[in-house]
Every structure is written in structure tokens, then in C-alpha cells.
Amino acid sequence: MSLVNFTTREITCKIVYYGPGRSGKTTNLQYIYSQVPDDRKGRMVSLATQTDRTLFFDFLPLDLGSISGFTTKFQLYTVPGQVYYNATRKLVLQGADGVVFVADSQARQLDENIESLQNLHLNILEHGVDVRTLPMVLQWNKQDLPRDLILSPQELDDALNFRTLPAFPADALHGSGVFETLKAISAEVLRRLSQTSSGGRD
């Protein structure tokens, strides 16, 4: 649950980018890192293999500035997408205030997207969280690839978005859709803080 410091009027939220291997989760964070001024971000930490595949997580702290009089900080994490890293995926997901599911738009990756989404739901459930209460948005990444290789946003919506969550087409490599995705998940997470809630914490 988001951490709120009423004394210093600060809010800290944890957002996890989830999805199958090579869908573009790390690319999202790298693009955000490249766009944000130095004084509003911390060092990006990447625990990766020698071939730059995420081994544990990537981490990027962001200072969003003042919102409703609260200094608002976001901690952005990615998980390793490859199937055999589920134990570490589950650890990173612990205490998440919101999730961005980054899907690979390539038609041949549809099964991997479905498997990863099911895995996300299972891991959330194992943390004792009702998936319907966890803020979540979807991103259809790699929409810049040739049309004959990818599914359209509508086709991806039909296949993966059965909860009619906010969804955004993206080309994370060049930044298209990255900002919109971050904005949407930020709003979903902070909206919970504008409503009455219990003060539980993970």
C-alpha cells in the first residue's frame, strides 16, 4: 500500500511493470529515465544477466513533484519476464500499488502474453490481494512493427483485456505511449488515495 508521511507530506508508491520476456518492460523504464531531468530521478538500478536480460528487477525512483500538497514519489520496478524466473517475479510484485502489464503485440507472442497475464493473476492472488482491487493498466507494445506481424490494439483488447482496463498502444523504444501509460497508472494508483481506505501496509 502507498506509504503516506503526513508529517513531511510525502507519498511513495510502488509500480511494477509486468509482462512476458522481451515485451519491453525495461525499455519503458529506460525511456522514462532518458526523459526525466536529473534532479527528479535517482540512479536506475538494473540487476541483469551478462546478456542484459533482467535477472531480478530494474528499479527507477521518480520524484513527481507536489500533488494536492504532497510530494509524490514513485518507485518503478520491472520483473524478469522469462518463465523460469517466477520466484523473483513474485518477490518484486510484493507490496505493489499498481501494475502495468506490457504485452508484446507480435501475433506469435500471443500465447506468451496470455501465460504471463495468468501468471500475474496467480502471483497477485498468492500475495493475498484481490486482483480486482489492484490498479492496473495494459500497454500494447511494439505497435511500430509491420502490420502483418502484429495484432491491432482491438485484437489485443479482445484477447487480453477481459476486465476492460485502460490500454495504450506503444512503441517504447521510441517513447510513443510510454508517457500515457505512466500517467494512467499514476492516476489509478493515486485515485485510491483520494478515497477513504484502510491504512494497511505490506
Binding site: V36, T72, K183
Partner: peptide, 19 residues
């Protein structure tokens, strides 16, 4: 409640400035 109900306008401008 922690944030005002109309926080989204401020969030939008904060993120726009960030990017």
C-alpha cells in the same frame, strides 16, 4: 482520504513537466 478529489489535473501537469 489523503488527496483531494481533483488531484488528476495536478498529476497531469507534474508528469508533463517531468517529460
Amino acid at each position: 482520504p489523503v488527496l483531494a478529489e481533483n488531484f488528476e489535473a495536478e498529476l497531469g501537469s507534474s508528469l508533463a513537466a517531468l517529460f
